[in-house]
Amino acid sequence: MRFSFTLWAKVVIARALIRVIAMYGDPLWILVNVGGPLLTSTALAFLYRFAGLPQFTGFAILGGGIAAYWGNVLWSMASQLSWDKRSGMLYLYITSPAPLTALLIGMSLGGILGTLPSSIAVLITGTLLFKPPFSPPTITLVLIFMLTLVALYGMGIALSSLYLFLSREAEEINEALYEPVSFLSGIYFPSIGRSSPLPIAIQAVAALIPLTIGMDSLRRTVFYAEGLSELWPNIALLAAMAVTSIYIGLKMLSYIERRGRETGDILVTLK
């Protein structure tokens, strides 16, 4: 039992470390993941300012900071096992004693740590440029931010298992998911609640996405200074979403491993 935990921890740390090193070893990654969200949020902030809504520029800046994570979850987390299958790396993982759960948790941890600097870079640059009216950081903000990330990466774990199971090209699913989820989750505008321009039925669908709840909670903390007493339903929902998506993802992964050994075509590309 002790050995199993040691192995699990070593795999988590190794996978997280490799993810961070690989991210910053690729100059193109830095350009896309820092430059992309920064440009989008700056463009939207300018738009809000020229539309006579300077108080909303903060939404765009905050959205840019979180968009980096959403991009990371989709392109580096959800797609990873599918890419690993294609390259043969998944074979190496399965035929080693390393638990796949540890590899996925390590990938998430590495993704969170690796994306942090680009997210901070977007927030600092945006704040310096537009000086949006932020409330001072609180414990509630930190809690919501962390829960949002856990829920988001939990979704990444579930998606990575799903991608593997669907046996579709990861790029195709990513392309299909990125814009609709970005829109519905309201990265750059409030997609749920009183200020949302969306019909209530669409808001209901949007609320099923952890990122939507996370963004709504972050906005309300940062711009409307709401605290734990107002946001506890959101926090509870985020926590439930995090636990559920991680549970589903890991269960699905264990099913896929079992089923893959039976059929032979889920874990490896048949020659």
Binding site: F3, T6, L7, K10, V11, I13, A14, R15, L17, I18, I21, A22, M23, G25, D26, S87, G88, M89, Y91, L92, Y93, T95, S96, P97, A98, K271
Partner: peptide, 27 residues
């Protein structure tokens, strides 16, 4: 296990670090 068709590791990571990563999969 080794196959000529599989990828060796992570492109933007050194050979040494790649080997270390795989050693961690075995604890």
């Amino acid at each position: 296990f080794s196959s000529s068709s599989e990828r060796v590791g992570f492109d933007f990571v050194t050979a040494r670090r790649n080997l270390w990563f795989f050693s961690q999969l075995y604890g």
